[in-house]
Design a protein around this nucleic acid. Structure first.
Lengths: 344, 344
DNA sequence: CGCCCGCATGTAACCGTTTACATAAAGACG
DNA sequence: CGTCTTTATGTAAACGGTTACATGCGGGCG
């Protein structure tokens, strides 16, 4: 059952294909009765323009490519949700891909996407923006999400101030009286993870006390669990700051296993404020990031570029908000009590 | 900076465009030295075939369309992860879309995707498969995920046996000595939610005791929280079965607020076994569903259809596995103790 | 009344591939 | 040593849209 083409519609409406095209794209003035005839014919034939043909002729694909480093967990589902909200608001399609770490692979995926999208939204905390954009040879506008520096500022970048967020969390833990604040790091080659580590160190350094206690993780719950077990064997932390919420959740689990009270014996904090963070027990103190909103704004930036509009600030930095919940305060034997519990 | 076309490559390699195409598609025998020349030229020019042109000429898009009803939470991120694993294994692209409930909107989205994909994977628990496929007029192969019945069996369907899962959970709660088992339902018009409700009722009916206790939810954590508050006011459940894990997590939160011990005073169970379910406190008893695996298999089915291979069983039903964790057993004043804690 | 202008529409070239068919060269074979 | 396959490559016609340009037509204006 061959689907109807623009020619079929033209014939049915007794006009030329050019007119049908004009009606469907609202590109030029067409007389009202003609418009009606065309729309009626298109409807009856259940005509849908062929995307490939359209993109071939017009050099637009009405599609945004999205490249993410991973798809695990709520961080990414929130991000995708924000992006999707944007694409569907603008009538665009969303081509999703994932490149596991390796910058080479990321570059390959970008090349494969190149001819099918009008712009790309790329989050690749493992690769330099420069590297990626050279993979594209500038053919497609690129918007970077939380990537390293952004390759000399050639591409708009949306980033989280990981350093500030980690600094704030660490400072909060110290201020509430913790003395041995450990850190569960993210993947070593992940730029965001590295920044969070720097933030942690900077905060420790700003007080004259306590050396660093670091365990290695990889952003998964599992690794948070393992890292915490390890920390409990080697050090005696009275606070653990995990570089993301998923690891913090694994951390809570390990502390429970070890019968350590949170925040009584050990305070815990995460990073990202994924939706579930407020529902774990105890609710997680974290660095709040408007994940979906960032996705949405980054997408809007893509759209602005495509449409030739002003994309606004080329580099938007989101400073995470310290979200204090029960895991770092409340009925602790350390510091003051929680000022107010959050309303859900 | 216009990107290179097949003609540029042909010129550089001193062959015809047909030969270039043959080399790139491995479609016919080409002499080795020619292959080398072509590949070298393509490489040097950084040639990437134009997807639109290709799809226009070959009627393939190498893209699978995925339509989901929502993007909230880990259920969908797991599903997407499974699907993505499949598409990237086969070198296919993934066009993602979300249609909020409304079957009309879903149909519209399908139409818009129709010309850009080779097959579609659709999860639309609000709409009848029949309805959706008529929106496509059979132009594109359709694989359904957890949809209602599957429109007379015309499309392969991958589904969870929601009834059996819910029955098993409810039976488990009853067997462990609970007498007032409440149910937090999913959206009323969601077919999966309806099946789970039926399963709950069937299990209650099979024992002669206790009438139903039902609160309305909508699959979000928030609604689980609200529904539980309501249940606590109106009924005195000693077990709460939420129709999915997210609501169960909200439920745990509400019970904590009310200072009710879990599973001591109230047992809790969910449905789906999302990754975080084992990390909440107490770990959640749930109906385990291999979410990512279902996504992957459904995708493989799409691929088989596209490639003209045997798609295998047209209707695959996954029976959820009862996953007993601490939220429904362990140090309860009811029933027996947990047989064994899970190894993480 | 003739001219020019602007509006609505048609004509046809072009976008970058794939592929059926044609062709040329090289062996195979009697 | 012709003829017949086989193999490698070229030629050119689709594929289904968009859009620059051409055309025809009615009305305003000097």
């Amino acid at each position: 059952m061959r689907s109807a083409t623009i020619r079929d519609v033209a014939r049915a409406a007794n006009v030329s294909t050019a007119t049908v095209s004009r009606v469907l794209n609202r590109s030029e003035a067409v007389a009202d009765p003609t418009v009606d005839r065309v729309l009626k014919a298109a409807n009856e034939l259940d005509y849908v323009p062929h995307g490939g043909a359209r993109s071939l002729a017009s050099k637009r694909t009405d599609t945004i490519g999205v490249l993410l480093p991973d798809l695990h967990g709520e961080f990414f589902s929130e991000l995708i949700r924000g992006i999707d909200a944007g694409t569907s608001a603008h009538g665009l399609h969303l081509l999703l891909s994932r490149s596991h770490g390796d910058p080479q692979e990321a570059a390959a995926v970008l090349r494969a996407m190149r001819s099918r999208v009008d712009a790309m939204l790329v989050m690749s905390p493992y690769a330099d923006g420069e590297e990626l954009s050279s993979a594209l040879k500038g053919g497609v506008p690129l918007v970077l999400l939380n990537s390293s520096g952004g390759g000399g500022g050639r591409h708009p970048t949306f980033a989280i101030d990981n350093h500030a967020g980690a600094f704030a969390i660490t400072a909060h833990l110290l201020e509430t009286g913790r003395r041995r604040v450990a850190f569960i790091a993210g993947p070593a080659d992940n730029i965001e993870a590295a920044e969070r580590l720097r933030g942690y160190r900077a905060a420790l350094a700003s007080t004259e006390q306590s050396g660093e206690l670091i365990a290695q993780g990889d952003f998964t719950e599992r690794s948070g669990l393992a890292a915490t077990r390890e920390l409990l064997l080697t050090a005696r932390p009275d606070a653990i700051f995990a570089a993301n919420d998923m690891m913090a959740i694994g951390c809570l689990q390990a502390l429970r296993e070890a019968d350590l009270r949170v925040p009584g014996s050990v305070a815990v904090a995460g990073f990202d404020d994924i939706p579930v963070a407020r529902f774990v027990e105890p609710a997680l103190t974290t660095a709040g990031v408007p994940i979906a909103e960032i996705g949405r704004q980054a997408l809007e930036c893509c759209v602005a570029i495509i449409r030739g509009a002003d994309p606004g600030d080329r580099h938007r930095i989101f400073t995470p908000q310290l979200v204090v919940r029960a895991s770092s305060t409340g009925n602790s034997e350390h510091g003051p009590k929680s000022p107010a519990s959050e309303r859900i």
